[in-house]
Amino acid sequence: MQVQDIIKILNLEVFGGSGGLNREISGGYTSDLLSDVMGHAECGNIWITLQTHKNVIAIASLKELAAVILIKGNIPDADILEHAENEGIPVLGSKEEAFELTGKLFNLLTR
């Protein structure tokens, strides 16, 4: 499944990084602790978080994550979108909370 597929199914907003919408998703990781993601997320994972600052893109890029989903209607900081565009990391948004969104994504990726 690609990032663009889950955008449609989960009705996600695309804030930036649209160059990476055809990235393949290998799984997901839900965490707001950056070192936790750095240490444990896997290449191709979608990262679900409430963090909205530029370091999110740095980590997503270094770990080669498929995309980032910001939860609870959070808006990314203005300075991250250019970075996301350059790195081709889609920054997506959902109105839902981490629990609901993670559950839906889990079902999509494991069915």
């Binding site: 950056l34 070192s35 750095m38 240490g39 963090q51």
Partner: peptide, 15 residues
């Protein structure tokens, strides 16, 4: 608040 400072960094390096 930025999600750093969880006391995991040096462990990540060691691992």
């Amino acid at each position: 608040e930025m999600g750093f400072g969880a006391g995991m960094g040096l462990q990540n390096i060691k691992n």
